[in-house]
Design a binder for these strands. Structure first.
Lengths: 277, 277
DNA sequence: CGAGGGTTTGAGTCGCATCAATATCTGTGG
DNA sequence: CCACAGATATTGATGCGACTCAAACCCTCG
């Protein structure tokens, strides 16, 4: 029964969460230019703008291609119009760290402003359509339009808050809770983009997910299997069906067997002593 | 011998890394206003500004006082002029997470821009002198001065990169490596501020350090003791002396005993097979 | 069809958390 | 000035969760 659900997704020639009607169409239909209003809509910021002087160029990337690299001089911000990417940092010890998976409506490249060169690299996981936003021009437009300027600050602040949430996740949650959060995050993101929030295909490997969440790929795989086993989700390779989003939202650890019993004991004991006193 | 070094710090009536000559003087000598140039200098941004129209107000806080709280409407950014603080986020499950320890020259409150209310709270760990920066006014000044505006973006980007580095730390490093990094970070920060980079007093508890690094307070304590035992540092309560900064910089794990041996075996085996081929 | 990357699953181990006891520091009131 | 309470720090014993290593399987693509 689980298998039948999944086969619906996987066997269908049209993949879920792919905007273009047919697979290879993305390149021919590519939109080459956007005006400021379209850019703002994509970023989900409500700036009343009428300035159509500048047209922002689109650029298409194939899966595997790099949009920017570490150390490259900074002059562009990027906005995802379609497709999926990953942003990676490499620390002084050579460790790779996945920092995020930019998708439709996300801005990336902000880290480059500070030192005038990117401190991360961003790679396309699928074929992508990305809008190029020359930083000088963007901030220049902001200077003539206070509303737009506020929106730019807001987008940067939003990124900051997202990273803070990630720090909190890595600093305090168990492996299961991290994976659960990741699934909830994806679900909400897919919903926002107008796709199904309950069934979708992962665009990244277990390795990349694990790296992102501070776990090994085996732990990610095992956790998916465990969620599958208790009916929270169905997994088959990259295909995911979410059955119980609410449980995923509140999950801290898996059915802790005797831990739960112990907690119950404690609570009971507390109740007794309170009653005795 | 180790003890004697530490007693130098701890017994001295004047504490290290305290700018004001005498303990209680901070309140009387408090500087009440700063102009834009002074603010920029503090933030270590080189903006050629001559606008002295606006005077930024200072405000003094005692240890334990809250500068802003979660959910409070956002209208201010803050810059630390002196003292030490901590910034904390509380996630939906009620977990506290220390996000940083703002000190002289750091800006905080940036997270509030996005939703127009702070998503974090910041508490004084010591008595502090903080500059209040009304965001509307600050960004307004930026709009008339491109150089300043670029500097504002740069400060925000700097914060973002710092958080990214923190994610990388939490995601990939062992407990020892995290603690070592933390010490290096403090050392560099104290040096920047003009204090000794090799001996200083911690302003935060083991609990706060552990929370910040995604560890328990016991692990932090044990790791300090271990570093002490192998001569990298001397610790006594909050007093720290750094003996070998370079080792702290490159440390991944503690004297790995047989792990190191195992790695050596592997390398040897690889060398042999390569030679055989 | 074979090669190679990606995924699943198992067995064993280790790092860090947890629980607990003691020691030390700080401040406060008698 | 001392005594005491509460917060902070150290250290030990123990257990669990996640990593490591390894083998098999699955999917894709040339």
């Amino acid at each position: 029964m689980l298998t039948s659900q999944l086969s619906d997704i996987r066997s269908g020639s049209m993949s879920l969460a792919t905007p273009s009607p047919a697979g290879a169409a993305w390149q021919r239909q590519a939109k080459l230019w956007s005006n400021l209003k379209e850019v703002c809509d994509l970023l989900r910021i409500q700036a009343r703008v009428q300035n159509d002087d500048y047209q922002f160029q689109h650029m298409q990337f194939k899966a595997g291609q790099r949009i920017h690299t570490i150390g490259q001089p900074f002059d562009m911000l990027y906005i995802v119009n379609s497709g999926f990417l990953k942003t990676v940092m490499i620390d002084e010890l050579g460790n790779e760290q996945v920092l995020g998976f930019p998708m439709k409506g996300d801005m990336f490249g902000i880290d480059g402003i500070h030192r005038k060169q990117y401190s991360t690299e961003t790679v396309a996981l699928t074929n992508c359509d990305v809008i190029l936003v020359p930083f000088k021009i963007f901030s220049g437009l902001g200077r003539t339009n206070a509303e737009l300027e506020a929106a730019i600050y807001a987008v940067m602040s939003r990124e900051l808050v997202r990273e803070q949430a990630m720090i909190s996740t890595l600093g305090s949650l168990s492996a299961e809770a991290r994976v659960a959060r990741f699934l909830v995050f994806l679900s909400e993101r897919f919903s926002d983009m107008g796709y199904s929030g309950t069934q979708f295909n992962l665009r990244m490997t277990r390795q990349e997910i694990g790296n992102y969440l501070g776990l090994t790929l085996e732990t990610v795989s095992r956790t998916f299997s465990a969620f599958n086993a208790i009916g929270l989700i169905s997994v088959d390779q990259r295909a995911i069906v979410i059955h119980d989003l609410q449980s995923l939202r509140t999950l801290r650890r898996l059915p802790p067997s005797r831990v739960r019993a112990k907690a119950a004991d404690k609570k009971r004991a507390a109740g007794e002593s309170a009653a005795a006193a």
